[in-house]
Nucleic acid binder design. Structure first.
Lengths: 214, 214
DNA sequence: ATGAAAGTGACATTCCAATGACAAAAAAAG
DNA sequence: CTTTTTTTGTCATTGGAATGTCACTTTCAT
């Protein structure tokens, strides 16, 4: 899992990189919001840890325009109640005030990135996200590696619409080559051939979705 | 939304009941874990706020056996790091140490009960903004992608007038081609056919509006 | 009552997800 | 290393749905 850390205090950066890497996360740190924006044009981390009070810009603005679709933990220098409240209401997934305990931060990071792990069961399909194993009616199904990644992304975004473009950015980000929207469509067809047509809902003109609720 | 508060400190209970009810939550408080267990046999609250260090039992045990399927915020008397870490790793959705700010608690409660359901409800219409799914009287309605985008814009501007021109700029911004005002009118007709005539109010000479008030 | 704005039904065109087929690339098997 | 199988990405086609416009009617405010 990849984490983008946006923080300018070097001691904090060093400490967190060490702690996060100890927990098998890949960390990229940026000390300015402008650098973070640049980084996000090319990459899509699983989590952003953001110091809301960076000198070079308005963290609130950055949050709203760039990372509202990414899981976010906000760090704040002060424990001003208003900051906590507005941070959480803005939509951040968690909020921690300095000085914070590194172990607590790690625990909160683990919690955020663990959700969507384990065995997820939708209708007659079981997805074991640890073993990367898919079963239909209890029987293992052979999926190619890309099919698995796509399904994984859908399963970790249950009840949310996933656009073809976001799928392309996620799944094909390592290749320099771009890929056509229709390629995604073809993969949906292939997954449906193996798992059944009803597991993935098409939203014409928008994207795809997996539904949980019965 | 219903909240079960498990806490024995009477001042905290009174304060939280007041604050939560101010925010339109229904609160039931139990000061012993045994009472809470009894309550849970008959009821299924949306959230449990649990003081982990109650005198009459092991909060950890209670958590694991009774409320692991319910959203939970854990309160702790001490800010011992180990407690926070183990609380979060146990699977609690959030963790707050005493003494805590009531406003922060409310903000965290709001976040938990709001997340997962980006559902806006007006009259007999429900709009799930995550799933991009619209229900009328609890039944799914099939809307085209443009109809959805238009409705989305109206729903996110509740009680505000939306002019045809602003809709055109918003919805048709990606196309180079401009679009006639009447096209908007036609879409309003199509949406009304599917959702009922009373959901969208026409302001002659100005635009359209969705009203929230009963 | 009158003119302007909004609503309506119909229509031609465009769009889009789905699909089967194919070649290139990669992986597995021999 | 060579052969075989699987995976991957693209393409052209298709049928049904979505879209935008028009001519016409109705509604509304003055």
């Amino acid at each position: 899992m990849n984490i983008l850390l946006v923080e300018d205090n070097l001691s904090i950066v060093k400490g967190l990189i060490y702690a996060l890497e100890q927990n098998n996360y890949q960390v990229v740190a940026k000390n300015r919001i402008s650098d973070a924006i640049e980084y996000l044009e090319e990459h899509h981390p699983d989590l952003v840890i953001l110091d809301i009070s960076l000198p070079d810009g308005d963290g609130t603005f950055f949050y709203r325009d760039y990372i509202k679709d990414i899981k976010t933990i906000i760090l704040s220098a002060n424990d001003n109640e208003d900051d906590i409240v507005s941070g959480l209401e803005m939509g951040a997934d968690d909020y921690i005030t300095k000085p914070f305990s590194t172990r607590e931060l790690i625990a909160r990071v683990n919690k955020l990135l663990r959700s969507g792990s384990g065995v997820i069961k939708i209708k007659n399909i079981e997805f074991d996200t640890n073993k990367m194993l898919v079963k239909k009616d209890g029987v293992s199904v052979n999926l190619s590696s890309l099919e698995l990644k796509i399904l994984m992304y859908l399963f970790t975004n249950i009840n949310k619409v996933v656009t073809r473009q976001s799928l392309i950015e996620r799944i094909w980000e390592w290749t320099g080559n771009d890929v056509y929207d229709n390629t995604v469509t073809v993969y949906m067809k292939r997954i449906r051939e193996k798992l059944g047509t009803d597991i993935i809902v098409t939203l014409k003109g928008i994207g795809y979705r997996i539904d949980n609720e019965k």
